[in-house]
Simulated assay, not measured.
Amino acid sequence: MITLGWVRMTALYNAWQNSGLRRDVQALDAGEATRDRGAFFGSILGTCDHLLRADKMWLSRIADGPEAPPGGIAESRNLTPDVAAWAARRKATDTAITRWAEALSDCDGDLTCSSGALGRDIARPMAVLLTHFFNRQTHHRGQIHAMLTAAGVEPEDTDLPFMPEPA
């Protein structure tokens, strides 16, 4: 279904896109970043926090990495106290995702993990879960992009073919 090359490319794309989000969100004043915009997670920062929490949760599942943050979806919009804290944790998480992708040797087989949303364990093909991991990131970045645009920010390109070559 997917290849190691796809996983690595998508991890780099995620880091590139989140770098732009960090720049754009940090350029907002605190009131703009935290203003309720009627989105599912309220504000720009609330949606950024949700995305970060979910990335950390999924990374704990697929990489046997650090423990997932406490709480569930309802609390995910309040993961960090402010934009600066979010930006630092976002950058560290993107580094962890990229390093994990580089070290990944196999994306075959099944993974069993606990789903808080379903309240039970699930077993799914690793390829399906990795596709979900990266697709969900794109979905939530799209929500953030729309809120940034409405706030008068012009985010940079999001097209994969325009991603800079890795250094």
Rank of each mutant, 00 (worst) to 15 (best):
P66W: 06
S114W: 14
P69A: 10
I144V: 15
G119A: 11
F40R: 02
I44K: 02
R99D: 15
D110T: 09
M1C: 09
L130M: 10
R77K: 12
R23W: 03
A117I: 15
I62E: 00
R35S: 07
T158R: 11
K56H: 08
G71R: 11
G5V: 01
A127K: 01
A146M: 05
L129W: 02
D36Q: 13
W58M: 11
N135A: 14
H50A: 07
L79E: 13
E165L: 13
N14K: 08
V25A: 10
D110S: 10
L111C: 04
R136H: 14
Q17R: 15
T158P: 00
M57R: 13
P161H: 02
M126T: 07
I44S: 04
S60A: 14
T131Y: 06
T93W: 01
S76C: 09
I2H: 00
C48G: 09
V83G: 05
T138N: 07
T34M: 12
W6R: 10
L52M: 08
H139D: 12
P70E: 15
E156S: 11
R90L: 00
A74R: 12
L160F: 15
A150N: 02
A85R: 02
D110N: 11
T98K: 05
A92I: 02
A127D: 10
H50M: 09
E154I: 04
F134G: 10
V25G: 08
S60Q: 05
R23Y: 04
H50D: 13
A167R: 15
A54D: 12
R35F: 02
M147V: 06
V128L: 13
T80S: 12
G119S: 09
E102N: 12
R22N: 12
T98Q: 13
D108A: 14
C48R: 03
L45Y: 01
G20C: 05
G31M: 05
C113V: 06
M126Y: 03
D159A: 04
A88T: 01
D49I: 03
